[in-house]
Design a protein around this nucleic acid. Structure first.
Length: 876
RNA sequence: GGGCAAUUAGCUCAGUUGGUUCAGAGCACUUGGUUUACACCCAAGGGGUCAGGGGUUCGAAUCCCUUAUUGCCCACCA
């Protein structure tokens, strides 16, 4: 087969992806082989591919492809997440564009719009992953709202409810006024802001005196039901038992005493608004205060806002402040830097709000999950430092608010049959619910029509925490073959930002429902940032178009570029140059193959240089293979890739191929050729996980292959012992060749001109590699001498001195200068080594081998000084 | 406010239990190179008080203390 001169990435990529799909190589079914399983972190169903996904999924694909080559039954389960808040927001926005208000739609109407949207945009991201080369088992593609997935979610909810772990509570929750739903604590991001701190006077009832309180939210005074002081605060003894009048609404409220108040902060007087602050709520509970909620669900003021009713809280804040000023009770304002809770999704400022929500009691559920990670290391986090973060969160975990005031998601399976607080039952179906309701209420006349299902949906994470189990139907059918075979999965690759949202909860769910970990290793990737360390985002416009990158550099180039500098847990500073480097590497491999492929083979004798070089490379390959293995065991993918990069580019292309390369238009011997082909194939095997397309393409050019012989399912090279001496000897050879090249460059001797080389051998270096040195140095004759050669250019490698005689062109002054410099350096070195050796404490305390090595250094240095001195003498 | 981590060449990072191969890699840079796989290339080369200070040790990038800077996580101070 004639190979094209240029590697055409996009044609090749399409061809092989289709080929792999056609032959079902991504598909896995349980068999007798060892399974290797990864479940994808399901991207948002309506999302598009960004750099984070690229990195994340490249890593997963590398792991999966490698496992496949190693003979494991590799299964990578893809899918998408319904992402309730994000998706619902998008659908609401789209409806709004069409002039439709969500509130005018019935539940079913809205859901039908949402499904339309999902079907239209959903899965785009999965198609993009294919472009990247991801070898997911697409037959297994799952969506968190598939019927079976939803069933599992409901089943788990009912089960946890029946275990007494899920309860309904009227609590202070985080309210996102934009999405109009509650959020879990984890979904609240605290952002530092500068706000105004308002000092406001409240008149003491029946006196012409005032107390001053400080607040950042003056509009909430309309919900005040007390003013609180610290009982030990001597300044306010006179206030005890009195009442104050809230400005604007003129409500009379008591002055209460509570230790919570910090004497140092603000004025030492705290206004208490139980409906709008978690601490105030607690104080309120302790003192049986009235709760006055002044906000609507969209954070506009309700009737308690009086003449400010209907205004947004932010507007109301200014207006109330203005009114207070006009009333003469606004004492002053100050700038205050503090943290404000915002919604992770909508960025809206969170309002603490009291409402009925569903909670999951986490206290006991987390116990096995803590043990698994921190004690038993059944689940390992990479990098390990995340153990600390994990511990802190798990040990301080609070109950999980799992209800969301959204339609898009699994509807909470609670059915109300009366108006009472506890007049509800929880069941997997409405029929079951009716039965339970009849029982619980004692009213056997209840009908399905009397039941009203809770209108809220469950938190998205309440479905995704089951993902590693539910994709194998492990919740509904715990004993099925698939879950037994694939679970627990092996590795999970995701970002540290969802360590709590998702990773920790999967571990919790795994132990609760399978009594086993969901995965053994968690590889936490870093964020992809731009060169200025800014997070890549749409709004900054600094995120490159992922598909454009693939077009420009090829999928392999992008994959290599992404992995070149991305240690686990470290952010990746991305720039296109990296992809360029990846593409250049692909080009290098391509051209190396073109060279080999162009050789004419003849049955001639194998040159000595080729023989020894091949032996060396085989050792070097094994050495690299062991290193790569070690890197993979520690999830150091960048290092593994770099090892291959250097192996293939430097050792294989620059050294080995240059050595075995026949002279122009000369044939190569068959023995060498066959070995080179085998070596090339092994190179392709180890590179394949990183560069699947290029390697598969070349693989097919190397020799005709049946589909069963495709590279994607080839056998990974086996680690064997290797000759380390050969490797270190060759390092010396490289130094000698470099020495020759340096002299050629310094003296402007063209590589085409042959030169002679003499060696003054003080070290009995093996002459095995002489043929290699001759070839790479273009040496006409090589000889060993016992004395310094006069009138020659020299260089030294270890304690050997090399001479290149050259007629008349020696600049004696220059040579003397050069040798003197080297002598001076070596003498200095010797002095420091001898200093060490004459230190008794060093000789007595240091391990034997360290002392021995110092002695060898001393001997080498002395030998070198001798040769330098005699060379200098002969020059003079 | 509490905790965790980082700081090594212009950039991105390795450097495992202190000691042979400890000051490294890739990129970038400088210089030279065009008939014979690749200029997306080849060859040679320059470049670092290992953030600052102190300590332990025969010996410290590595262990301890301290200062500074940066990043991340957690936390209800109005």
């Amino acid at each position: 087969m004639e190979i094209p001169t240029k590697y055409n990435a996009s044609n090749v990529e399409t061809k092989w992806y289709e080929y792999w799909m056609e032959h079902n190589y991504f598909h896995s079914t349980p068999d007798e082989r060892e399974p290797y399983t990864i479940v994808i972190p399901p991207p948002n169903v309506t999302g598009v591919l960004h750099m984070g996904h690229m990195l994340n999924n490249t890593i997963q694909d590398v792991l999966v492809r490698r496992a496949r080559l190693q003979g494991k039954n590799a299964c990578w389960v893809p899918g998408t997440d319904h992402a309730s808040i994000a998706t619902e927001a998008k659908v609401v926005a789209k409806l709004k564009d069409q002039g439709i208000d969500k509130n005018d739609l019935t539940r079913d109407e809205f859901l039908s719009h949402a499904w339309d949207w999902t079907n239209e945009y959903g899965g785009v991201i999965l198609e993009q992953l294919k472009k990247l080369g991801c070898s997911c088992d697409w037959d297994r593609t799952k969506f968190t709202m598939d019927d079976d997935m939803s069933e599992a979610v409901i089943k788990v909810f009912v089960d946890l409810f029946n275990k007494g772990l899920i309860y309904r509570g009227y609590r202070m929750v985080n309210w996102d006024p934009e999405a109009k739903t509650t959020l879990s604590d984890e979904e609240v991001i605290h952002v530092e802001r500068t706000d105004k701190l308002y000092y406001i006077n409240y008149q003491i009832e029946g006196e012409n005196n005032f107390v001053t309180i400080a607040t950042t939210r003056p509009e909430t005074i309309l919900g005040d039901t007390a003013v609180c002081i610290n009982p030990n605060d001597e300044r306010f003894i006179a206030l005890k038992g009195k009442k104050v009048i809230v400005p604007i609404c003129n409500r009379v409220i008591p002055i209460i005493e509570d230790d919570y108040v910090d004497v140092e902060f603000g004025t030492g007087c705290l206004k208490v608004t139980p409906a709008h602050d978690i601490n105030d709520k607690e104080i309120g509970d302790r003192h049986q205060l009235e709760v006055i909620d002044i906000l609507n669900e969209d954070a506009t003021l309700n009737s308690y806002g009086l003449h400010h009713q209907g205004k947004d809280r932010v507007v109301a804040r200014k207006d109330v402040a203005k009114e207070l000023d006009e009333l003469g009770v606004l004492v002053k304002t100050e700038e205050l830097i503090h943290k404000v809770g915002t919604s992770e999704r909508t960025k809206a400022v969170i309002e603490p709000r009291l409402s009925d929500q569903w909670f999951l009691n986490m206290k006991d559920l987390v116990k096995p999950a803590i043990k698994a990670v921190l004690e038993d290391e059944d689940v390992k986090l990479f990098p390990k430092r995340f153990n600390n973060t994990y511990r802190h969160w798990m040990e301080n975990i609070r109950d999980w608010n799992i209800s969301r005031q959204l339609l898009w998601g699994q509807q909470i399976p609670a059915y109300f049959y009366g108006d009472g607080k506890d007049d509800f039952v929880v069941a997997e179906s409405k029929d079951d619910a009716l039965m339970l309701a009849k029982e619980k209420s004692g009213n056997s006349n209840l009908t399905l029509n009397d039941l009203t299902q809770d209108k809220d949906a469950l938190d998205t994470w309440f479905s995704s925490w089951l993902w590693p189990m539910s994709v194998f139907d492990g919740i509904r059918n715990p004993e099925n073959e698939e879950i037994k075979y694939y679970y627990p999965t092996n590795d999970l690759v995701t970002g540290p930002d969802i360590l709590f949202f998702w990773v920790a909860r999967m571990i919790i769910a795994g132990y609760e429902y399978k009594d086993e970990k969901p995965f053994s290793n968690v590889y936490l990737t870093g964020l992809v940032r731009d060169k200025q360390r800014r997070k890549m985002s749409k709004s900054l416009g600094n995120s490159p178009d992922a598909l454009k990158l693939i077009e420009d550099y090829g999928a392999d180039g992008v994959r290599v570029g992404l992995l070149l500098s991305s240690a686990a847990g470290n952010d990746l500073m991305f720039e296109e140059d990296l992809c360029q480097q990846g593409k250049a590497f692909a080009n290098k491999i391509w051209n190396a193959f073109r060279l080999v492929q162009g050789w004419e083979i003849a049955d001639i004798e194998q040159p000595e240089s080729s023989h020894i070089a091949l032996k060396w490379y085989e050792a070097k390959f094994q050495n690299a293979l062991a290193e790569i293995e070690d890197h993979f065991s520690k999830f150091r993918l960048s290092d593994a890739l770099m090892t291959m990069y250097k192996l293939v580019w430097d050792d294989f292309a620059s050294w080995l191929l240059e050595i075995v390369k026949p002279a122009y238009q000369q044939p190569i011997d068959r023995t060498t050729y066959n070995k080179i082909i085998t070596i090339f194939e092994n190179n392709l095997k180890i590179l394949h996980p990183f560069m699947p397309f290029l390697t598969e393409e070349i693989w097919q050019y190397v020799s005709e292959r049946t589909p069963e012989e495709a590279l994607i399912v080839a056998k990974y090279p086996i680690i064997e012992g290797y000759d380390t001496q050969l490797i270190s000897d060759f390092e010396t050879v490289k130094d000698v060749v470099s020495g020759i090249r340096t002299i050629r460059k310094e003296k402007n001797i063209s590589f085409k001109d042959t030169i002679e080389l003499s060696v003054l051998n003080n070290e009995n270096l093996s002459s095995t590699f002489d043929a290699v040195i001759s070839k790479l140095g273009n040496i006409s004759s090589m000889s060993s001498v016992t004395e310094t050669v006069e009138g020659a250019l020299t260089f030294r490698v270890q304690s050997n001195e090399y001479f290149i005689p050259i007629s008349g062109a020696i600049n004696v002054e220059e040579e003397i200068e050069k040798l003197s410099q080297e002598l001076k350096y070596t003498e200095g070195f010797l002095k420091s080594v001898q200093g060490k050796l004459s230190n008794e404490r060093f000789v007595n305390n240091a391990p034997e081998q360290v002392v021995a090595s110092e002695k060898k250094k001393e001997a080498d240095a002395m030998a070198k000084i001798d040769t330098l001195k005699s060379s200098l003498a002969s020059l003079k």
